[in-house]
């Protein structure tokens, strides 16, 4: 269904998630104050898989949830109104926790800016970190990720699509030439 070059397959994604999970618990020195918040849609599944991996590493439950950024976007007026996606802040909240935002692709950085604004209305975490499966460059805002699955040099003409098992039935990252 998707034409283009597969740059990560199922086992590449599994390895990247495993490494990200290790890096996250290493930097937070354990998982007790850690809250993983996925940005819908695919960031949520990614954050669930990272949470499962960290639970295995640390043998301790990890709080995980989702944070919809639709109402905080800066491009709302450029497109028709979109449907909202679920926000689920884990019990215990984010107050004084280390929040790791999880998204599939980091591109302009505008989604992350919106997520930071959304987070601000939920509470005041001790620190906020950013984990992404793919960093494709071309930032438009001064935002950088703390944990990266794969750095993927792209041109702005290209389209990067992340597919995940539960959402799309397959694990893969595909780069295609965008047809305009």
């Amino acid at each position: 269904m998707d034409h283009g070059r597969v740059v990560m397959d199922g086992s590449d994604i599994a390895r990247a998630i495993r490494r990200l999970s290790h890096e996250i618990v290493e930097s937070t020195k354990g998982s007790q104050d850690l809250v993983l918040l996925g940005i819908p849609t695919r960031g949520v599944e990614l954050s669930q898989r990272i949470a499962a991996a960290i639970e295995e590493i640390e043998s301790q439950a990890v709080s995980q949830g989702s944070l919809d950024i639709t109402l905080y976007r800066d491009d709302l007026r450029l497109k028709p109104a979109r449907a909202l996606l679920p926000t689920a802040i884990p019990v215990g909240g984010i107050e004084d926790k280390i929040v790791v935002l999880v998204d599939d692709v980091l591109y302009s950085g505008r989604s992350v800016r919106a997520a930071l604004d959304a987070l601000n209305d939920v509470g005041r975490p001790r620190a906020v970190r950013l984990a992404v499966l793919v960093d494709r460059g071309h930032r438009q805002l001064p935002i950088r990720p703390d944990f990266v699955g794969k750095n993927l040099p792209t041109s702005t003409q290209q389209l990067v699509r992340v597919h995940l098992r539960d959402t799309d039935g397959i694990d893969s990252v595909v780069v295609s030439e965008e047809v305009r």
């Binding site: 919809d68 109402l71 905080y72 709302l76 449907a83 909202l84 996606l85 679920p86 926000t87 802040i89 604004d117 601000n120 209305d121 939920v122 509470g123």
Partner: peptide, 20 residues
């Protein structure tokens, strides 16, 4: 109705205002 359900969750917290 689905959007309203999300709005209900989003306003069930201390900061009830959204910048939209």
């Amino acid at each position: 109705l689905d959007t309203a359900a999300e709005m209900a969750l989003l306003t069930d917290r201390e900061v009830k205002k959204l910048p939209t």
